[in-house]
Amino acid sequence: MSQNQTQPIELHYWPTPNGHKITIMLEECGLPYTIVPVNIGKGDQFKPEFLAIAPNNRMPAIVDPQGPDGQPISVFESGAILQYLGRKTGQFYPADERARVAVDEWLFWQMGGFGPMLGQTHHFRLYAPEKVPYAIDRYTNETNRLYGVLNRRLEGRDYICDAYSIADMACIGWARGWEKQGQDITQFPNVARWIETMMARPAVARGLKVGEELRTAPAGIHTAEEKAILFGQKAR
């Protein structure tokens, strides 16, 4: 189906693990796309034009000019975007119901646990203005538990499910940051092997590089103003 995509998909994006999920999928599927930068450190995610397609003020989001019945559609939430692109292209998201259920289980595992908990680990280990030992231990330990879950799942498997899928794409951007998360990857040999397998895929490598030039400071380095925007927002 991807070969019929004559108009590029707009990807509203910043180079983060959640953004990388979608660039990897687009690269794997061979779909044409253009990047619309959403500088989350400067507050672009709160602009009205972005909120119109992503009401949770979180990137990524896409606008597909050739959506269902040839009409445009916007999609927010990275997991929903992966499922949409999988259905659209017929790639990396199985049609068989049992196989699809397995992919959905692990996609939702990433969305509900692996991403949020690792994100909290990043926050309290790297970004918090003061070190809170309880929070650091709480999230580092939960991250360790989740790596253990993934390690058991990957026993005897090349990929998280029976074949390479959007579940793998959802997890790799987070898993490759194990060192910053206070983890010893030698404790999880199946995860280490899987990371190597994933990083050897050309489309994964390309997807992870998209938007590198957008960063003006090393990952994890933010000004006080950027921290206020990223971590200090309340309801608007």
Rank of each mutant, 00 (worst) to 15 (best):
33 Y>S: 05
222 H>L: 13
222 H>F: 15
115 G>N: 09
141 N>G: 08
100 R>F: 01
32 P>S: 07
74 S>L: 09
121 T>P: 07
17 P>K: 07
147 Y>K: 05
130 E>C: 00
19 G>P: 02
107 L>V: 12
231 F>D: 01
140 T>D: 04
11 L>F: 07
15 P>S: 08
125 R>T: 10
214 L>H: 04
165 S>E: 09
63 V>A: 03
118 L>E: 14
97 E>N: 07
233 Q>P: 01
173 G>Y: 08
15 P>D: 10
164 Y>H: 14
176 R>M: 15
88 K>D: 03
123 H>M: 08
152 R>A: 14
133 P>D: 08
38 V>P: 02
140 T>C: 00
180 K>L: 15
26 L>Q: 05
93 Y>S: 02
197 T>E: 14
14 W>R: 01
152 R>T: 15
147 Y>S: 07
102 A>L: 11
20 H>K: 10
36 V>G: 00
96 D>G: 02
150 L>W: 02
111 M>I: 15
86 G>N: 08
61 A>I: 13
150 L>H: 03
98 R>P: 00
67 G>V: 09
64 D>R: 05
33 Y>L: 06
190 N>P: 10
236 R>H: 12
117 M>T: 15
32 P>I: 09
196 E>C: 09
8 P>S: 03
176 R>D: 09
119 G>D: 10
203 A>R: 12
188 F>L: 03
198 M>W: 11
63 V>E: 05
231 F>L: 05
87 R>Q: 08
63 V>G: 02
225 E>G: 05
154 L>M: 03
214 L>F: 11
121 T>W: 04
163 A>V: 14
191 V>A: 06
36 V>D: 00
99 A>R: 11
32 P>L: 10
11 L>W: 07
210 V>Q: 10
71 Q>N: 10
19 G>T: 06
63 V>N: 04
212 E>G: 15
112 G>P: 05
167 A>P: 09
209 K>P: 07
84 Y>C: 09
210 V>D: 02
68 P>H: 11
105 E>K: 11
110 Q>I: 13
141 N>V: 06
4 N>K: 07
194 W>T: 05
107 L>R: 03
10 E>G: 01
7 Q>C: 00
7 Q>G: 00
93 Y>H: 04
186 T>N: 14
40 I>C: 03
104 D>S: 13
136 I>D: 01
5 Q>D: 00
